[in-house]
């Protein structure tokens, strides 16, 4: 089997299933009564944490390529990024539809007044723009250079997601710090990669591979 067919017919379908596993897990928790005494809050946090996990996983693809040298891995990046956005949409929906029950006035006040929600929304808006421009047609329409530039915003979205999580938790909690630490690690790998490339090409101003 060629690598292309392996990716297309085996690995990608497998990845789809893996990406949907958190929803199956949620179904199982609901079935076994594991949604706590406050299921709305639990659902919201569960979806939010998976959105951030998928965003970090998507951001791991490029560094993993430079660390392993396997170029084929890049073909999973869009799928993972879109699943991150999928969970962001579910997360936002649970906030709007369940937690706030479509109280748009209160939602607007939350966005304006509560910094961690403002930060989270910035991340969500960025991911929406990236998801909307993720098709081949959009890459063509924007041109590779512009598209690359736009999609650099994913770094901002990653930082916004981690900051949102850290600010939401009370006290100094380990979990959000671990997420942020992992993000910093990913960015450092990219930066080292960028420096290496720049040295090799011997010229200034080359952007890193997104």
């Amino acid at each position: 089997m060629t690598q292309d067919r392996l990716i297309r017919h085996v690995l990608k379908p497998l990845l789809w299933l893996l990406c949907l596993a958190p929803l199956a897990g949620l179904g199982w928790l609901a079935y076994t009564g594991g949604l706590t005494a406050n299921p709305i809050e639990f659902l919201n946090r569960y979806l939010g944490e998976w959105a951030l996990k998928f965003l970090l996983i998507a951001l791991t693809v490029t560094p993993l390529r430079s660390l392993t040298g396997w170029a084929g891995i890049i073909r999973f990046r869009r799928l993972l990024g879109l699943f991150a956005f999928f969970y962001v949409v579910l997360y936002l929906s649970s906030y709007i539809g369940l937690d706030q029950f479509f109280n748009w006035g209160d939602i607007w006040l939350d966005i304006v007044k509560r910094t961690y929600i403002t930060v989270g929304m910035v991340g969500a808006v960025i991911l929406a723009a990236l998801a909307a421009t993720s098709t081949k047609g959009m890459i063509k329409r924007l041109g590779g250079k512009n598209w690359n530039r736009l999609h650099k915003l994913v770094y901002v979205a990653g930082a916004a997601g981690c900051l949102h999580f850290f600010m939401m938790r009370k006290g100094v909690q380990l979990e959000p710090i671990m997420y942020a630490g992992f993000l910093v690690f990913l960015y450092l790998v990219r930066f080292a990669d960028y420096l290496k490339k720049r040295r090799r090409k011997g010229k200034v101003g080359t952007a890193p591979a997104a």
Partner: peptide, 11 residues
């Protein structure tokens, strides 16, 4: 700063 205190969800 984190929660509007105007309302609450009774468990």
């Amino acid at each position: 700063p984190r929660w509007s205190q105007a309302k609450e969800r009774r468990i």
